[in-house]
Each structure stands twice: as C-alpha cells, then as structure tokens.
Amino acid sequence: MFITGIILITIGVTFSTLGALGLVRMPDLYNRLQTSTKATTLGAFSTIIGVGFLNPSWLIKTIVIATFILLTAPISSHNLARASHKWGIPLSDKTSVDKYDSKAGKEE
C-alpha cells in the first residue's frame, strides 16, 4: 500500500511538472490548454489516488473526488478553447489547417 501510494504520487508530481513546463514552452493558447489537460488528468488524478493508498480508509473518497475531477476538467478546457476561438485569438504559425474558422460564423 505504502509503496504504491508513493509511486502514484511521484508519477502525479512528475506529470504536473511536465504540464507546467509545457505551459511555458508552447507557442499559443490552444497548445497550452493541451498540455494543461495533462496536468489535470495524470497529475491530479494519480496524486489524489496516491493519497488514498497512503491512508487506505480514505481510498473510496479519493476515488470519488478523482472521478469528479475527470468529469469536470474537460468542460473548462473546452469552454476556454471555444470562447478564445470565437473572440479571435490567433493560432500559432505552425498550425496547418483550421477547419473551424469557416463554419464558426454559421451557427449564430
């Protein structure tokens, strides 16, 4: 139990760090959102589950908390990306194609 918990927390901290690094290195908002989903999925998820393994009486509660994070995190990412695109925040020069651009106006 103890070893599993330590391993899970180490994985979580590693991926949170990589998410933060990606946030600095990526060229535009959309790619930054991509790397920040990494911090929320494996980062927060395995840290919380790892705490549950360290203290087994909390395990069920931590699984419920992790499930709520997994259900709600993508909605905020999606809304940030959609609002930014509608507001006209440009994509980076490396972007090869933007198929949303031509259809975005039709919806209104």
Binding site: Y30, Q34, T37, K38, P74, H78, R82, Y100
Partner: peptide, 25 residues
C-alpha cells in the same frame, strides 16, 4: 467529447450537430 478532451493532445473546440471540431497538437 469529454473523452477526447481528457486525452492530452486532442481537444474538442466545438460540436455542431454530429460534427466535432478537434484541435490536435
């Protein structure tokens, strides 16, 4: 849509009817 967004590297920007607009890294 949530599964796509949860997977790092792909992000659902919008859904119109049955068409998904997905940003890929």
């Amino acid at each position: 849509a949530n599964s796509i967004t949860l997977t790092p590297g792909t992000l659902t920007v919008d859904i119109i009817d049955d068409t998904y607009f997905i940003h890929c890294i």
